[in-house]
Design a binder for these strands. Structure first.
Lengths: 105, 105
DNA sequence: GCTATTGTTCGAAAATTATCGAACTATCAA
DNA sequence: TTGATAGTTCGATAATTTTCGAACAATAGC
């Protein structure tokens, strides 16, 4: 498909990161990526239409939390662990450590 | 006035905390409370009408981030540092450490 | 070329949140 | 009791987000 906008580390804003992580579905995506390293959008299916999922990926991407690259016809996503660690040290691991709450379906 | 609802530590949800902190005005309140220990609502004036500020205090209070108590005719607010530390260790200090961005007025 | 697969984008509708003025409540002080 | 102060609540409007279907774009394989 085409290239995505990924903010540079210096452009990553705390507010945007916190906001992106404050949604259960997006948090669920982040946790899954943390467990599995990387995954396509389809593999991260949240039981919702593709357009809805795409919206959430975009929020995460534009906040600087995930990196998306093309891989054939699909998109491979991974956490920007190092970038986040550099900008907000410890934040991601705290969020991942917090007990997971049910995600509504 | 009257008593406020403050969630017990076990009721504090990550999503709500992150959401509450994702707003510039609320983040500014939290930072100020961190610096000054405690403050009345008036002292935390964000240059907006009282009803708007009251709304933000409520979001912070119901997320479990601040504790509000009556003090004469005013309300004294303080961070629930220890409770937050117990529930999401490290989170608050990371947020406070992050460089402050302008709050629009 | 055609077809299937994977996601994005668009547009509209629904839901949530923010904003503010006005009315209200509670406390203190004179 | 009157007045002043501090902040909440209500109600309405505005702004932002979310949600989803439908149309679209890009790649892969036949």
């Amino acid at each position: 498909m085409r290239q995505f906008r990924h903010p540079a580390p210096s452009e990553i804003q705390l507010e945007s990161v916190l906001y992106a992580l404050s949604d259960p579905m997006r948090l669920s995506i982040v946790r899954q990526l943390a467990r599995e390293g990387e995954a396509t959008c389809a593999a991260l299916d949240g039981g919702r239409p593709k357009s809805s999922m795409s919206h959430h990926f975009r929020i995460l991407r534009e906040a600087g939390i995930i990196k998306t690259r093309n891989s054939g016809t699909s998109h491979m996503n991974e956490l920007r662990r190092q970038d986040l660690e550099n900008v907000f040290p410890g934040l991601l691991s705290i969020v991942l450590k917090a007990p997971e709450t049910e995600v509504a379906r």
